[in-house]
Structures are given as structure tokens and as C-alpha cells.
Write a protein that binds this DNA or RNA. Structure first.
Lengths: 190, 190
DNA sequence: CTTGAAAAGTGATTTAGGTCACTTTTAGCT
DNA sequence: AGCTAAAAGTGACCTAAATCACTTTTCAAG
């Protein structure tokens, strides 16, 4: 477990510095969790008690519309954070599903603990501030891509940006992430 | 000016508490700026020296595609923050335009000053962390709406969520925000 | 008030992408 | 290795929304 916590520490220290003392305080606020492929991290209607840092594995966050169609909000793998941020923040029942596309391991942080370490250790507040800012920027770019680009160029763009992801994820899920039908995506390669 | 700074302080104190001493330190890092309708706050290719808190007025943030079509990333009015966050964060030339739909006033915060007050005053780091988190949640919901809803229901949703905005902004801009053509939007009301 | 420009509405046509139905390929399991 | 199920590919057809061209309405500035 220490080696896994060490990865998390490195993740923090890519952005801010922590003393050993601070880190020992911080790390005590995380819980470990491990799930197999197809198991759920978050489900619609269930409490969302944590946000998750992914030690290893791959998950998808998605919602299901009235017609039963899946719409993928996010893929998240090693070194990513994932949750139903909205439900988590407001401590409300989940509004999306998150499940594992591969066997995965997580460090779990509750809202209470997050606020605790943020207000206790300013560097942690800055860490999450900067992380959250990067996330915001990424989402803005995704919105722009949805507004300005055709389905095909969004696909090319993703191929460039996250080539690794494409290899780990079935194309029908990529299609659902891009907002395009499986069949249409399949006609792009050609 | 003091009354305007007081509004900004209230904006911070909706989320975190600041001592008078902290506030005096924080406020000294903002600059005031005033623009008329149609003037630009940010332009593609120009340096993005600040992020802006809007004291009063209304702006649109948008990009222009190869065909000259405008795609609106965000409307921002009183009490909102706006910038080209991506360019600002990386201190690169602007990638979007931001201009005023009404005469507007801003408090401007440079990257250097933002980092300074965040690392000097932990409450400020927490303020921006929490704000940024809210922003992230909003963008996630917008992405979901783009993936799951038809143009028409996105419009109805916006009518509900920001009725004030619709009254202040020409419909063709609303169309461009929703990712739909002006003509199509015009056929919805009926 | 008047007038010119921007905004909004509307019909006709086109098109990107969706849907449906079916086949082929690939990948896990025992 | 063999079998099942999921994934991917493909053709035919359909539809929501884009585009183009034009008219009507609204609004702001002299």
C-alpha cells in the first residue's frame, strides 16, 4: 500500500510541495478501494460518498437517456480523478453511472475529508484549485469541439489527443463519448 | 470605487471568510477596467493578461471557425468570472474573443497576482478551488446537455435556467450558444 | 419622428448523421 | 481449441437540422 500512496504523493507534488508531516496528515484521509471490470463505482440514485483518484484501471462516467442510450461524460484512467462531482459536492443521490472497463484501484476521498485537508493544508487547497482549473479548461475545449467540429474531426482530434485511450476502449464507447452513432463512427476510418 | 470593491468582497465572502487585513491585501491585487458595448476584453492572438470579475455588464466569449461562424462558449454577467482561461493559465496568446454586449466594468486579476493571493491567503485558494469546482460541474452539465438533448429541449432548459439572460441577448447569439442555427431556433417558439 | 441596420421569421432545399437490419470479425471463457 | 457474445462493418433509408434566399419586425442613432 505504501507504494500506491507514494504514487498519490507524487501526483500532489507535481503541482505543490508537501512536507512529510503534511503528507502524513493528508494521506490518512484517503481510503483504498478495488473493483473488478463491470463493477460500479457510482450509480444513479445511490449516495456519492467519495471522489476517486485512480491508482490503476479505467472507468467510464455516463448517463442513460429515456431511450436507454448511453452518453459518456468522461473516461478516466490512472492518475485521473473521477466522481459524480455534482452529486458529491451537494451530497445528493448520484445522477450518473461510473463503472469499470478494467479491474481498477482507487483512493477515495470523502467531502468532509477533502474540506478538512484543504483548510488544514493550504498547499492541498492550491492543488485542488489548480487541478480543478485544468479540468475546467479541458471541458471548455470539449464544448468548443462539440460546437465547432464535425463528428469526424472530433474523432481525429481524439485520436491525436488520447491515442492510448482509443486502444483500451471499444469504438462504440468512443462514439458515445463523441456524440455520434456507432455506425457513423465506423464509417470514418475509411 | 470602494463600493465596487465591497461587492467583490461580498462575492468572496459568500464562500469563505476574510479578515479585514486579508481583504486589504487581496483587494490591492485587482485592477479596475471599464469598457463600452462592442469593445473587446480579449482577442485571438493577443496576450491574455487577466481574468476578470464582472462588476456590471454582459460579455460573450466565443470562437470563430474557418467559415466565419461564431460559437459561443459562455455568456458572463454581473458576479461572473470570465477569461480565456486556457491562454491565461499558460500565458499564451488568446484563442477566443471576449467582447461586451453591454457597457461593462471589471476587476482584473493577473496570473501572478492570483497565485500570490492564493498562496498568501489560504481562504482565497479555497475560494478559487470551490468556484472552479462549481464551474467544472456547470460545464459537465452543459456537455451532457449537448450529448443527450435535442436543440429544442436545450433551448427550453436554458429558458428555465437563465430567463434573464435570454432577455438581454439577441436570439441569434442564444442559437450560437446552443449549437443550433438561428433559423432553427426561430422555428422552436411556435 | 425617420431611417438604416440588425434581428427575427419563413419557405424551399440540402445534408450530415441517425436508425434499422443484417453480416463479419474479434475477444473472452470454460 | 471451440463457442458464445460483444464489437465492428455495411447497405438502405430516414430525419433533424443546416443552408440559402428572401421578407418582416424591431431597435437605436441622428
Amino acid at each position: 500500500m505504501e507504494d500506491k500512496l507514494q504514487l498519490l504523493r507524487q501526483h500532489f507534488e507535481e503541482i505543490v510541495s508537501l512536507t512529510d508531516e503534511e503528507w502524513n496528515f493528508v494521506k490518512s484521509h484517503f481510503e483504498f478501494k478495488s473493483l473488478k471490470k463491470h463493477q460500479f463505482l457510482i450509480q444513479v440514485g445511490q449516495p456519492v460518498d467519495f471522489e476517486y483518484w485512480i491508482i490503476k484501471g479505467l472507468v467510464k462516467a455516463y448517463s442513460i437517456d429515456e431511450k436507454g442510450k448511453e452518453h459518456i461524460l468522461q473516461f478516466a484512467m490512472e492518475d485521473y480523478w473521477v466522481s459524480d462531482h455534482c452529486a458529491f459536492q451537494h451530497q445528493e443521490p448520484g445522477t450518473i453511472f461510473v463503472d469499470c472497463l478494467e479491474d481498477s484501484e482507487f483512493f477515495c476521498l470523502s467531502l468532509e475529508n477533502r474540506e478538512k485537508i484543504c483548510f488544514e493544508v493550504p498547499a492541498v487547497a492550491n492543488f485542488f484549485r489548480i487541478k480543478s482549473n485544468h479540468g475546467y479548461i479541458n471541458l471548455q475545449q470539449r464544448i468548443l469541439s462539440l460546437l465547432t467540429m464535425t463528428a469526424e474531426s472530433r474523432y481525429e482530434y481524439l485520436l491525436n489527443k488520447l491515442p492510448k485511450l482509443i486502444q483500451r476502449v471499444p469504438k462504440k464507447l468512443i462514439a458515445s463519448y463523441l456524440g455520434v452513432s456507432r455506425e457513423t463512427l465506423s464509417r470514418f476510418n475509411s
